[in-house]
Computed example of a mutant assay.
Amino acid sequence: MDDLAGFLRTRRARVDPAAAGIPVNGHRRVAGLRREEVAHLSGVSVDYYVRLEQGRATQPSEQVLDAIARVLGLDDTECGHLHRLARQPRRRAKAPGGRVRPEQLRVLDLVTGAPAMVMNHRLDVLAGNRLAGLLFGRPLPGLNVARHLFLEEGEHGLYADWDTCTHDVVGHLRLAAGNHPDDPRLASLVGELAMGSERFRRLWARADVRARTHGRKSYRHPLVGPLDLHQENFALPDAPGTELLVLSAAPGTPAEDGLRLLAGLGTEAATGPSTDPSAARSVDPSADPAPAGYR
């Protein structure tokens, strides 16, 4: 799903040679830095850098990788991604399971004034409170935020900042692919998105990586209108890559009124009838087998 050569190639193309101290005389046939220029600026031989970019250099030192990261102007997230890609094959991190502990479900039930969800590294919603179901306007079991964003809602749907969201989601999935290269369900999701969305294919080819982080999230809800919310993420220590996300509204804002109005809506109108109340809160996405992935 992810490879060192593609990542380094796209990062090299971003660097302005003049800003890196490389004299630019006439037309250059490639964007950014050449491989030999990265090698020179990093203090390694051209042959070693070529082998590294091709995945043939085993166990490169942290000093070498940090030097390359500095030349390429990588941020902390990209630098960590480079280290993981350069050290494959290695002991692979096991993909987190899809089970949510009963204690975590109780915590979700305690959050009554804001949408709250448990989400894994694939952006599967594993569990959510009633308000989260009302926000998305559908049952939470089976909801994958990336699929919802690219294949179901589209540019004029629920996500007001659709352009930014698409960059963030693809960057997150790229990062997840580096952390879990052997996860067949993640590979299958990437393949599905690539086949179904031209925008996803273009963004995936950029090889950008982004860490999921807190910040502003804006929605266009069909029943209550605009909702400008703040997303706060809480890592779950017993399930690496899985987080509790809470979407809150600032006091006294239209978004707070909107959430209050949303909370007053009937569950039946937003999520449909269910004979099992717990079914709308928790799902185990690892239960279904996945087809071969996209690489």
Rank of each mutant, 00 (worst) to 15 (best):
T10N: 11
T10P: 05
A13P: 09
D16A: 14
D16N: 14
L33M: 09
E37F: 10
V38E: 01
V44I: 12
V46P: 03
D47I: 11
Y49D: 01
L52T: 03
L52D: 02
Q59G: 14
P60C: 02
Q63Y: 05
V64K: 00
V71E: 01
T77A: 10
L82C: 05
R84S: 06
R87P: 08
R92P: 08
K94Q: 14
G97W: 03
G98W: 02
G98C: 06
V100H: 00
V107Y: 04
M119R: 13
M119L: 14
N120M: 00
H121F: 08
A132I: 02
P139E: 09
L140N: 06
P141C: 04
A146Q: 00
G157K: 02
L158G: 05
D161H: 06
D163L: 07
D163N: 00
C165V: 12
C165K: 11
V170T: 11
H172A: 15
P184C: 01
P184W: 07
A194H: 15
M195H: 12
F200V: 09
R201C: 04
R202E: 15
R202S: 14
W204A: 05
R206M: 12
R210E: 08
R210D: 07
H221C: 03
P226C: 08
D228H: 14
D228M: 08
F234H: 12
D238A: 13
D238L: 15
A250N: 09
A255N: 13
A255F: 09
G258Y: 02
L261Y: 07
L262R: 00
T271L: 13
S274I: 07
T275L: 12
T275F: 10
R281M: 15
R281H: 13
S282Q: 14
V283G: 10
